[in-house]
Design a protein around this nucleic acid. Structure first.
Lengths: 201, 201
DNA sequence: TGATATGTGTAACGATCGTTATTAAACTAA
DNA sequence: TTAGTTTAATAACGATCGTTACACATATCA
């Protein structure tokens, strides 16, 4: 796991420290998270943090990058790994709801609930946010296109339109979860939302 | 407008100052906005701010309350004032997109893009966010119910389900706008989104 | 006109911010 | 064992944070 330079005095686990930093930023935001908060959660002292990550802003950008990694978004992974497309759409939504309310990390979505605040006033954030959004769109589109090739969706299925629809719906769940409101999760509601995603034009 | 106690030395316009504070918080977030930023934008000195609003946190809560006032959300107002329900839904979406990208204030939505970050770590925010969300749901439901009474919508139309659908879609536009991404605004996409909102069960 | 009330502006408060110089400790290589 | 290297921990840096005393200006009312 941790690829430390062998042998030296027990170096801390950088991956683990970064994961801890994500949760702090996620809970308090970039400006709300102090170095004291961060070092306490990461289990290191500030000089180690600076040696490993540069400064607070770079740590923040690293946290965003780590969070945006391919396999870091459970809803996307659920969507991509479910064989039947109808079930995949439902899996995406269920995973979105579950994930946003999960107890082992703050509510909502790090990107949608927190990073968005710093877009435009912390350098490097806007580009990363854009990449995360368009990247998600593209992964959703990819799956739809694959299904079209397999004749599981009609040839005129508007993949990008529906991908964006899925993504946009997701943000509502995220905000409700952040506000500690129960998100709708009745089977009927989920079925309806899945139906409209896959509805013929 | 400003209801100052008459005659005393030129008191600043509290409403106008609060409006300026909203934009600062909206752009930089609660923790990212310094008192210096705030007083500069509000055109007053800190003692005046403290006399009028208490402290930074109370000013923030006042800003949230002011922003959440009944007539402060253009998409909602558009939805409520358009006579035909089909056109009202489209007006809501168009207003959402326009508003989130408008140039006279920061991108996105103050509540959805910024306040959400402080939910859970600044006292008083979560309750206000909940009230704003459920309040919006209720206003959307109210209009749908009125249309049902006028037989413009079927009796079994699931008002709450569709209200939440509208609201959730909105958040996607808000996030994209915050990230300075163009949101979809083709007539076809809008038509489709309006269609699914009003679709029979 | 003077006394008083109200709000402004200056300047400073202690606390905490992000950051770093410096010292101590731990392990490898010889 | 000892020299050398790498990391951790302590403590301090100047700057800025949110907040507030204090003195000055302005307008009303006696």
């Amino acid at each position: 796991m941790a690829q430390n330079k062998i042998g030296r005095p027990r170096a801390f686990d950088k991956d683990q420290a970064l994961a801890a930093a994500i949760n702090v930023f996620w809970e308090k935001g970039f400006d709300g998270a102090s170095m004291k908060d961060l070092t306490a959660a990461m289990g290191i002292n500030s000089p180690s943090l600076y040696a490993a990550f540069g400064d607070k802003r770079q740590l923040y950008l690293d946290a965003i990058d780590r969070y945006s990694e391919d396999d870091s978004c459970p809803p996307l992974v659920a969507f991509e790994s479910e064989p039947a497309i109808e079930r995949a759409v439902i899996a995406f939504m269920k995973a979105t709801i579950d994930y946003a309310q999960q107890q082992d990390h703050p509510n909502g979505c790090f990107l949608g609930s927190c990073v968005s605040t710093t877009a435009g006033h912390v350098d490097g954030v806007t580009e990363r946010l854009q990449k995360a959004i368009t990247g998600t769109d593209e992964r959703l589109v990819l799956r739809f296109e694959q299904e079209k090739e397999r004749d599981n969706l009609p040839d005129d299925f508007p993949s990008l339109q529906r991908a964006r629809l899925m993504f946009d719906l997701r943000q509502g769940h995220v905000l409700r979860a952040r506000a500690e409101l129960d998100t709708i999760a009745t089977e009927a509601d989920l079925q309806f939302r899945a139906k409209i995603i896959l509805a013929p034009v």
